[in-house]
Structure formats: C-alpha cells, structure tokens
Design a protein around this nucleic acid. Sequence first.
DNA 1: GCCAACGTTGGC
DNA 2: GCCAACGTTGGC
Length: 158
Amino acid sequence: MAYWLFKSEEGCFSFANLEAEPDQSTGWDGVRNFQARNMLRDQIKVGDGVLFYHSGGNPPAIAGIAEVVEEGHPDPTAFDAKHEHYDPKSKSDEPTWYQVRIRAVKPIDPPLGLPDLRQVKELEGMELLRKGSRLSVQPVTAAEWKKVLSLGKIKTLR
DNA sequence: GCCAACGTTGGC
DNA sequence: GCCAACGTTGGC
C-alpha cells in the first residue's frame, strides 16, 4: 500500500469531473513524462491512495481523495491519431506511455490550498511543496498522507 | 503575463 | 556525451 499525488488542472479535469464519471472512475491518461510514466507503469498498485490536486487554480489545492482501481496498462490515447495526446512513437507492441485507473473516494471540502499546506510543519519535505516541483505524478509518504487527511477532516475513507 | 525550474531535442 | 536552444509546467 503506497500513496501518490496526481495533478490536474481544475479547468481541464477536476475532482468533481471524476465523481461525475460512470463508476466515479477514469483512466489517468495523457501523462507524457518518463519519470511519471515509470511510476504509473511499475510502482502504482491497486488499492493505493491518491491525493487529487488541482493545479493552476487560485489557490492551487488538494481537492479530494481517490484510489487506484487498475494498475499500469498502455495509455490508449497515445495510439489514437485524432487524440490530442497522440504519440506516433508509441507502438501497441511496445507502448511508451501508461495509465492507471483511479476512482473518487471523497472530496476534501473546503480544498486544502497550497499556501496553507506550506504552513504545516509535518509537510515540509513534501515533493509538492518543493520549489520548481513539476511532476504530475508524485510519491507521498504515509506520514504526509495521514497529515493531509487529518487536515481535510477525513476520519474514515468510504 | 512573467519567470523559474525543469525535460527534451539535436548539433557537434 | 556535452550542452545550448527550445518547449512546457505551474506558482505567483
């Protein structure tokens, strides 16, 4: 059991969008960064916890909790010539890009804004808070996970 | 809109 | 293999 943080621009695909999906789940497609790809392909497992982060908002914020429901498999949007995330270099017999499937568990309302998170001593080492942190998929420690859930007033999942 | 902090590309 | 140029992300 491990923990992760996934970034999404709120205006692009929000936690509310995830909750509105059939089965409240979606394939996390479109990741085109090798470091993030390696985590999606090799490390992220069914049952892992996901902090759903809205980037680009005012303020940027952690807006919900999700869980992994399907581990890494080839990202179909890379094979679709009409898709915005199409990558002709990714072949179906040797895919470059991977996705996992996540399902919404609980919103964090109000969301935990970035400036507030920066005030929390226990989160000082968090990758999200590091200057210049751009990875759209990041590992989160068990202690950070626990702290974020308590800040979000989440006592029990599901 | 600005700019820092990256990741990627390609010439050499 | 180095590194400059370029493109992108994302906070502010």
